[in-house]
Write a protein that binds this DNA or RNA. Structure first.
Lengths: 339, 339
DNA sequence: TAAGCGTTCTAAATCGTTTAACCTTTTATT
DNA sequence: AATAAAAGGTTAAACGATTTAGAACGCTTA
């Protein structure tokens, strides 16, 4: 009891395979009568439509879109920002009857999917640098989010401007300011950056954020000292806790701490409150992203709100449209109660 | 500058296509010398290996596994339990060089993927009931998690026993007990179940939990009244808040409230504390799942801990093994401070 | 010498479609 | 009435691989 094929059906109905195929794919190629007649007959004999695997080969189109997440899936799936991003992507894909293949950005290579997926949505710079190269060298469409790939359309917010604005709002003349940064240098653990060489500086959004902070600092006449800039290798609580402790215990303690993500800022806030530090009296804190939890803290977090869902939706739409123009999404500065 | 095919390569190297194919897939079919010679030559001329789309058609194998989530992806991706589950699945799939296709359980049909995926992992009963039927009628392997599908292997914990045990630990003779349940009846909003007909009772884990609670209640000589059982249509905060308010405002107020998920229990706890109710003095609460947040509440939640990551890993392993035997995973009763 | 055998490779069928090119018949245009 | 265009179908060549059956070769053995 093998599965029916187009050929079987054609033979049974006494028409050519092309006609059956057209009935399913190109209504304009045959009369409406014949078409419904064929479709009915198919339903009758239990033929559910052309085999997808064969279609993929023949058409060179699978309706599968690969979502390449920056890190290993293990990690990304639990990040609330990545999470809502995926949500956005999946929503649009579904509306368009496309399928979502989750792909890890720390994988070795894309060779085992590039032959059949219709395109790539890349969320954050892949951990494995060679992936970026591979992505760029192949010819299927790519949309990048939160990083840039030469010649490919990107979805982004203006990170430099947003960072500048929130920093400007948080800073007072004469402040001592620290920065808790993300993936600025190549280091497996939390540390100050000093004069370590900056990583991947052209395409990284965290470097844009750093630029924004620095511009604000300079405008306020505050010196930017690299031993006041921390680097976290991942946007995860455990690294944040460590950085928070260090920065809060340094003396003199900073008056402002600019954090490149809400995850970091939340951990810092928690830590500061535990130490009995008055926020914002003795210390001002800013976050970045606008995750839900940031709106629920007490005092509630000053941050840059961006909509990850929307990013995901726009990325998917852009990929499907085949358009090649990048897009800058809006963001919103929330002053909160921590500055 | 088209992509190279096996044929092109064969012609260039002066051997048959079969030999090239064997060089990539069946090392035992040719001499080691010839093999390395061919592989080197391929690298040289830029042939990265057999086209995957063609392989899928020919071999009937794609290395793609569909993960069917109970609801729309939109919703599932943000649920911490589903989340860590996906993590587990993805980890094992990656180790085995398989790919993960995320599939919504409220989709119309699986016809557009069944032809090319290698199998299905089903997390929770699909919202669209016909999907279950479709899954069962096709011949590719299926592994179910947190629900049952006739004749297919399942990964589960013993929900009845776990519920019985936590209820038993929470109950005192003479208690008034309420239950906040999940998907017990067909209703779009939060409500008491009264004598509404139970939904999907054979395969649902929440019905097993109800069975466990009821067994404990009976053993303690406490009457099970259906107007003390609430039903939430989804495991989401907004439904939980509503149920929490209702149950806490009912008079006489229950002494114990058994919740079928931590999400519900956390919302209930929050609500009770806001109302100034002493936990566990005036009210005892139990959750279910053992999500991270449940360990961080004050007082911290009594719940049934199960490892979603492990569930995911086991499900993937089971699918890949081709084995057909179900599996019951361990769980742990955490007494916490709320009972 | 011929048969037997293991090894290494090739030819050709196959997987299940899509689609360009072609052939009829019908309808519209001058 | 003659011709062009449209409609409705068919044929057969792709798409890019895998795999079975068997050819060719060199070798041993009776």
């Amino acid at each position: 009891m093998k599965k029916l094929t187009l050929k079987d059906v054609a033979k049974q109905l006494g028409v050519s395979t092309a006609t059956i195929s057209n009935a399913f794919n190109r209504p304009d190629q045959l009369s409406a009568n014949k078409r419904t007649e064929i479709l009915e007959a198919c339903k009758e004999i239990g033929y559910t439509g052309p085999n997808r695997a064969a279609q993929i080969l023949r058409k060179g189109q699978s309706n599968i879109v690969a979502l390449v997440l920056a890190d290993s899936l293990d990690y990304m799936v639990t990040d609330p920002v990545a999470n809502t991003f995926i949500q956005g992507v999946s929503r649009v894909l579904r509306e368009n009857q496309k399928h979502l293949l989750l792909y890890a950005g720390d994988s070795d290579s894309i060779t085992d999917v590039v032959d059949f997926v219709d395109g790539f949505i890349c969320y954050g710079a892949p951990r494995n640098g060679s992936l970026s190269t591979q992505l760029n060298q192949q010819s299927k469409p790519v949309v990048t989010v939160d990083f840039n790939l030469e010649g490919r359309p990107a979805i982004n917010i203006d990170n430099e401007k947003a960072s500048y604005e929130i920093a400007k709002a948080a800073l007072r003349p004469g402040d001592r300011a620290a920065i808790l940064g993300l993936r600025l240098i190549d280091s497996p653990s939390t540390c100050r950056i000093y004069d370590s060489p900056l990583l991947d500086a052209e395409s990284s959004i965290t470097h844009r954020r750093l630029d924004g902070y620095c511009r604000a600092l300079k405008e306020m006449g505050i010196e930017v000292a690299t031993d006041w800039i921390w680097n976290l290798p991942e946007n995860a609580g455990m690294y944040a806790v460590q950085a928070a402790r260090e920065v809060l215990q340094s003396s003199p303690r900073p008056d402002v701490i600019l954090c490149m993500s809400d995850i970091i800022a939340l951990e810092l806030l928690q830590c500061a409150l535990t130490m009995g530090i008055d926020i914002p009296g003795e210390l001002r804190i800013t976050g970045f992203d606008g995750i839900e939890e940031a709106a629920r803290t007490r005092p509630y977090m000053a941050t840059v709100c961006q909509s990850s869902v929307e990013k995901g939706m726009e990325a998917a739409k852009l990929l499907l449209s085949g358009d090649n123009t990048s897009m800058s999404l809006p963001y919103e500065i929330k002053l909160g109660e921590t500055i």
